[in-house]
């Protein structure tokens, strides 16, 4: 809720300038289970090996498997998830976790591995915004964002966050259904985007059944 006379700030207004300019490689698909996370992780690693400083955001809040694929699991359940916090407070910023030379931010670090996030679109957008702009990255060259399947709110947020080059890596499988879907998940025309070829990998590491965490609470310090 806004106080009278207070101007509405667009989502992403507080993203630090240096992060705002970092190119985004969005890994997307029209359908789930095609290997987006596999592709995201396996592109991040050789990019890093080539000398690029890579950030990997696991924006698939409902199946944050990128962290699990790299062997990072949070065993302790979370009692709440912080969506935003006042500047300067301990929970104001998240710290990227480095693994195999890739800096990572994931919802999997915010909740226990047996928990799941049952959040609606506006909260999901806030969380992804926090994962991208609220994380302290160490001098990254590019940000790979592993998106959830489809063309909903999180995808729209990522494609419009900041004035940066955005590249879309659309993953498909040799199936008529998934091949028919990539077009709708391409970024809107006003963003700078280039299509990359997709190399589908295995869809191993699918998320195990998760226990919903209720209620999801936001804390403000």
């Amino acid at each position: 809720m806004r106080a009278a006379g207070q101007q509405e700030r667009p989502l992403g207004a507080d993203v630090p300038a240096e992060v705002e300019q970092v190119p985004v490689i969005a890994v997307a698909s029209g359908k789930g289970g095609v290997g987006k996370t596999t592709a995201a992780v396996n592109v991040a690693l050789p990019l890093s090996a080539e000398g690029a400083r890579v950030g990997l955001v696991d924006a698939d809040l409902y199946g944050p498997d990128a962290a699990h694929m790299t062997g990072l699991n949070r065993t302790k359940d979370a009692s709440h998830v912080t969506l935003f916090a006042a500047k300067g407070t301990a929970s104001a910023r998240l710290q990227a976790v480095e693994r195999y030379g890739v800096q990572m931010a994931s919802a999997a670090f915010l909740i226990g591995q047996a928990q799941g996030l049952g959040v609606q679109a506006p909260i999901a957008q806030l969380l992804v915004h926090r994962l991208i702009g609220g994380t302290t990255w160490d001098d990254i060259d590019c940000l790979i964002v592993d998106l959830p399947p489809g063309t909903a709110d999180i995808q729209q947020l990522v494609f419009t966050l900041g004035k940066r080059a955005t590249y879309a890596l659309v993953v498909v499988t040799p199936s008529a259904r998934t091949a028919a879907r990539p077009r709708p998940c391409s970024p809107p025309p006003r963003t700078q985007s280039r299509s990359g070829r997709a190399y589908p990998g295995s869809s191993a590491c699918r998320s195990a059944r998760r226990r919903p965490m209720t209620p999801t609470s936001a804390s403000r310090s």
Binding site: V41, N42, A52, Y167, G196, Y199, G201, S202
Partner: peptide, 30 residues
């Protein structure tokens, strides 16, 4: 490559990474 994959997949990911690296450029390019 950290998941189990055939060499062709590894080569494909490495090729894709090289193309992306060329596309995104370096910080001095931006």
């Amino acid at each position: 490559m950290i998941t189990r994959a055939v060499p062709e997949q590894v080569a494909a990911y490495e090729l894709l990474a090289r193309q992306l690296r060329k596309a995104i450029g370096t910080r001095s390019d931006r």
